[in-house]
């Protein structure tokens, strides 16, 4: 669906992206990770035909962004970091306007709009003026405009930006619902959210693509299975002594001592959960919980971009 080869974009002397190359297949949901100023938005703008590249080749659905931007625009839906909505219009009028602008036949506009409203759960807001909507609903209207013409590719720039926790969960469900129907490229700073939506990740830093792959592949690339958290019954010292002997354990940190219970964080070269449980059970130590540490992707991301743990 997307082939990017040596993409660079300069703003004057400043290189926003330098020689970025990647491929995205049809039907994939790909997360685009990067700190502020890493070049995420610029890359998405080039893919959305909002900006033209300084150099490199970008092919979307077989069309080149510099030669056939019009053909690409017919096939994509783009949600910028700020939803591009007109406050004075109602939701229905706005979506109908966008659908016509993107070439939907007049006879189909009403059904396409209804479909987009249904997918983004804004059907009850059809007649409301956009100026009266909350930020969460404006974001959903922004998403609805991106998919109203049923594009093959959806490019979503920070779709959960500025939303409260409840709205984030709702937006995540909406994006999950798009899986299968569209190829989706989504950028976000809420890395926990991305980990629940995406099949694969692209990590950019300083305008360069520094890693790509699934969460497991990125984790392997770092030579670490990432932290594992364990809650068990007993005192800390014997448990730590026991686990230290296991192959692949790099470091053990005591998180909490709560009466007879102990919580540990184990850094390991690979996913050692089965071996850890086996060792604890054989030593007759009661295991209450074994889990990969929260914000695992965040850890990977920080290691890739800064070389440190969260």
């Amino acid at each position: 669906m997307i082939q990017v080869d040596g993409l660079s974009k300069y703003y004057g002397e400043h290189a926003a992206i330098k020689g970025v190359s990647f491929t995205i297949n049809s039907g994939e949901v790909v997360g685009f990770l990067g700190l502020n100023g890493a070049g995420k938005t610029t890359t998405l703008k080039v893919l959305g035909c909002v900006l033209l590249p300084t150099s490199g080749r970008v092919i979307v659905d077989g069309f080149d962004v510099t030669r056939d931007p019009h053909e690409i625009r017919k096939r994509i839906g783009y949600l910028p970091d700020t939803p591009p909505v007109y406050d004075e219009m109602t939701v229905g009028e706005y979506l109908a306007f966008v659908a016509k602008l993107r070439g939907v036949a007049v006879a189909n506009v009403a059904s396409f709009v209804a479909d987009a409203e249904k997918k983004t759960a804004i059907t009850d807001k059809h007649d409301d003026a956009i100026s009266t909507l909350s930020h969460g609903y404006r974001q959903r209207v922004g998403l609805a405009q991106a998919l109203v013409h049923k594009p093959k590719l959806l490019i979503l720039d920070e779709p959960t930006g500025g939303l409260d926790p409840v709205q984030i969960v709702e937006m995540r469900e909406v994006i999950k619902g798009l899986k299968g129907e569209h190829t989706v490229l989504v950028s976000s700073h809420i890395l926990g959210e991305i980990s629940q939506i995406c099949d694969r990740y692209l990590v950019v830093q300083g305008g360069e693509l520094i890693a790509q792959g699934t969460e497991a592949e990125l984790s392997d690339k770092l030579g670490s299975g990432g932290p594992i958290e364990i809650d068990c019954i007993g005192t800390a010292a014997p448990v730590i002594e026991l686990l230290k002997k296991l192959d692949g354990v790099i470091d053990i940190t005591l998180i909490k001592l709560d009466g007879q219970n102990v919580s540990l964080r184990i850094d390991a070269k690979s996913d050692l959960r089965p071996q850890l449980v086996k060792a604890l059970v054989q030593a007759d130590i009661g295991v209450l919980r074994v889990d990969r540490a929260a914000h695992r992707l965040e850890n990977i991301f920080l290691k890739l971009t800064h070389g440190k743990d969260a």
């Binding site: 959305g48 625009r73 591009p84 993107r102």
Partner: peptide, 8 residues
């Protein structure tokens, strides 16, 4: 950006 990303 809505106009820029549309076939217009």
């Amino acid at each position: 950006q809505l106009l820029y990303s549309s076939p217009v």
